[in-house]
Amino acid sequence: MNAMTPLVGEPLAIDLVNTLTAEGDLLQDPAALGAWLALEAERLPGFDTAADRAALDAVRSVRGHAAAAFGALAEGRRPPEPALRGLAAAVNAAPSSTRLTWDGAGVAATVRREGAAAERLAAELAQAAVDLLTDPAVAKLRRCGAEDCVMLFVPAHPRRQWCSPERCGNRVRVARYYERRKAGR
């Protein structure tokens, strides 16, 4: 796995925050945003992977607010008020309406957002951040245990230490192995 390949599989808001890595910004241009949207297509259906500059700017703004809020929580601090206001503003910039329909077996809900594509995308991502911030699972939020990693994750298992066993876990284990071998000489 390339160190510059986005990690996916955490809650959507954490996947977004984790596009800003110690190695650099994985959303450096509209094409990179489009590639990330393709990786997240199941969770963000209906968003065009041919992103433009307006979408990139809107997503980066949401990411900044979410990173500030989640980073503070991971360090046991209160999320900054400007970050919370920024997330709320992004959600409210593309108001949603819900339509309920009967499909013969159950009720289905369809949520539609109003506004430009960039605002709708930012609102969906900001809503994902709000949903996680208000979920009790946010109390489990942790930063990767590797010294040079800034990734966040919500562990499914309490002993999980790294953002990814393939990315940081293996690297840390190999470094420890070489340290022990060097010390044993």
Score class of each variant (00 low, 15 high):
residue 66 A to P: 07
residue 138 V to F: 03
residue 43 R to H: 15
residue 74 A to P: 07
residue 73 L to P: 00
residue 49 T to M: 05
residue 51 A to Y: 00
residue 44 L to K: 04
residue 68 A to F: 10
residue 136 P to D: 08
residue 67 A to Q: 10
residue 81 E to P: 01
residue 137 A to F: 05
residue 46 G to C: 11
residue 131 D to R: 10
residue 153 F to D: 01
residue 114 E to F: 11
residue 79 P to T: 03
residue 133 L to E: 09
residue 122 A to C: 08
residue 147 E to D: 15
residue 90 A to F: 05
residue 84 L to G: 04
residue 152 L to Q: 00
residue 88 A to I: 11
residue 143 R to L: 09
residue 128 A to L: 04
residue 107 V to Y: 11
residue 81 E to G: 03
residue 92 N to Q: 15
residue 55 A to Y: 03
residue 83 A to H: 04
residue 99 R to V: 14
residue 148 D to H: 14
residue 100 L to A: 14
residue 116 A to L: 14
residue 122 A to Q: 01
residue 107 V to N: 06
residue 36 W to Y: 06
residue 48 D to K: 10
residue 36 W to F: 09
residue 42 E to K: 13
residue 35 A to W: 06
residue 45 P to G: 10
residue 66 A to D: 07
residue 128 A to P: 01
residue 54 A to C: 09
residue 72 A to D: 11
residue 98 T to P: 06
residue 49 T to E: 14
residue 66 A to G: 10
residue 116 A to S: 14
residue 97 S to Q: 15
residue 38 A to G: 12
residue 151 M to I: 02
residue 144 C to H: 02
residue 45 P to F: 09
residue 110 T to D: 13
residue 91 V to N: 00
residue 113 R to P: 01
residue 37 L to T: 00
residue 124 E to G: 08
residue 64 G to N: 10
residue 101 T to K: 13
residue 102 W to F: 14
residue 131 D to C: 08
residue 147 E to M: 11
